[in-house]
Design a protein around this nucleic acid. Structure first.
Lengths: 129, 129
DNA sequence: GCAAATTAATGATTTATTCAAG
DNA sequence: CTTGAATAAATCATTAATTTGC
C-alpha cells in the first residue's frame, strides 16, 4: 500500500469529509486548517498535511475544468452554426500554438541537473511533519 | 525593515551566494538543501526557507523569460519577412484567445464562497488569522 | 533639489499544465 | 481513465528606481 514510499490513496470516509468541506465553501485552507483536517482524517488512515493541500488544489482545478467543458458544451448546443467538435478542435489548435510559443528555444543546453529529489515547499508551508 | 510582517528583502551578500549557486547549476533545491542555504544566508540577515525556495522559482522563470525574448528578437532580426512586432502581436492574440476559452462562462453562480461556517470538526474554522 | 506620480523589479500566491502511479 | 504529486506559467502586491513638474 503506502507505508514507505507510495502515494496517498484516500479512504472513502476521508473523501466524504473533504468533499463536505469543499461543498461548504472551503477552497484554499491555510496551514492551521490543513493540520486540523489532516489530524481528523488521520483517524481513517495514514495521511499528511500535503495530501490535504494537494487534494484541494486538484479538486478545485478539476472542478474548473468540468465547468469549462460544460459551458463549452452548452454554447455548442445553443448555437447551430458552430459545432462542439469545431470548438474543441480550435481550442486544441490554439493550445498547441501557445505551447509552441512558450517553449521556443527553451533549452540552451547547459546544466544537466535534472533535479532529483523534488519537494513541495508549498505556499503557507512550514515544517509540516 | 522586515521584522514583523514585511516581505523578505535580500541583502547583497545573500544575492551573491544565491546567484553563485544558480550559476553552478542549482535550479530546484530540495528541502534539505534549502534549509542549509537558508542557514548559511542567515548570517547576513533574517531569512527563512521559503524565501530561498521562491527565489529559485522566480529566478529560473525570469531567466527563461529573458531567454525567450532574446530568441524572439534574434529571430525577428534574422528574418525580414516577419517582424518582431508581428510575432509579438500574434502571440498576444493567441494568448487572449486561449484565456477566452479558459474563462468562458466561468462563474456560473457557484458558492458564495465566504459563507457558511460548517462542520463539527474544526471548531471555529472561520476567521483564521 | 525634492516629493508626488509612474514605471520597473521582484517577492509571494494562485492557477494551469504535466507526469506518472494504479 | 482517474487522480495524487510536482513543476511551470500567470498573476498579485509591494518595494525600489525613475521620471516629472514645481
Amino acid at each position: 500500500m503506502h507505508p514507505g514510499g507510495a502515494r496517498w490513496s484516500p479512504m472513502p470516509e476521508q473523501i466524504k469529509v473533504l468533499e463536505a468541506l469543499y461543498n461548504g465553501g472551503m477552497r484554499t485552507p491555510n496551514t492551521l486548517q490543513i493540520e486540523r483536517i489532516a489530524e481528523e482524517l488521520g483517524k481513517y488512515g495514514r495521511i499528511e498535511g500535503k495530501n490535504v493541500f494537494y487534494w484541494f488544489q486538484n479538486h478545485k482545478a478539476r472542478e474548473r475544468q468540468k465547468q469549462k467543458r460544460r459551458a463549452l458544451l452548452a454554447l455548442a448546443s445553443d448555437n447551430g452554426s458552430v459545432g462542439f467538435s469545431d470548438l474543441k478542435r480550435e481550442e486544441e489548435r490554439c493550445k498547441r500554438k501557445c505551447r509552441r510559443w512558450s517553449s521556443c528555444l527553451e533549452g540552451e543546453g547547459g546544466h544537466s541537473d535534472r533535479t532529483l529529489e523534488l519537494f513541495p515547499l508549498l505556499p503557507e508551508w512550514k515544517q509540516m511533519e
